[in-house]
Amino acid sequence: MTMSDRLVTLITGTRKGIGRHLAEHYVARGHLVIGCSRSPADWSVENYEHVCLDVADEPAVRNLMADLRRRHGRLDHLINNAGTAAMNHSQLTPLSTVRSIFETNVFGTFLFCREAAKLMMVRRQGRIVNLSTVATPLKLEGEAIYAASKAAVVSLTEILARELAPWGITVNAVGPTPIDTDLIRGVPADKMERLLARQAIPRLGRTEDVANVIDFYLRPESDFITGQNLYLGGV
């Protein structure tokens, strides 16, 4: 086991959107960033490594962590960004869609938390940040399964925070508002306007807004902050 000099940050779902922005953001801050997604990334930058895997594939996730352990000897941060949504009325939602959303959003998040924590326990420190959503507190029609899966992520965050605290690992979540990414591309404009009107600050979010909250959670001084979920936009 060799020890990397750089902070090692693992981010899921980095092929595009928020995940890509976060990967570039933390590379710019001097971290060694390991990203993953099902498909290869069509972008690259120095000090960024991309791994192709399904976040709910247990052997693949275990192999990724074993590889991190062998090559870098440490994992400082995990950002569970990978997520999927299927916006539709519950009466028009097949069970296969429910399973698929829970596989990625809940099972994948759990798996990465569990396996990353094993690596963080070695040095008795670590930061885990999960992605929730304002769709849960806003109780958005058409997003029952997505919102429910992210409610599960909040619950996981709160309990894992307590379970992992003895090893100096914090677990927090950030809940973005809608951001102009593929995830919301299919939402009708009038619905989006009504949704934004329910925020204290009625605008689309930016990836920088998400990075700002994660920066705060990752700071060494934030070692007394755990089990928290921060919604953006004043929701």
Binding site: M1, P59, N63, A66, R69, R70, K118, M121, V122, W167
Partner: peptide, 18 residues
């Protein structure tokens, strides 16, 4: 829990298995 995680890590380090 710590002992189990440490042993798993040793399996990876010593034998290259996960």
């Amino acid at each position: 829990v710590t002992l189990i995680v440490t042993i798993e890590g040793r399996v990876t380090d010593e034998l290259g298995r996960s």
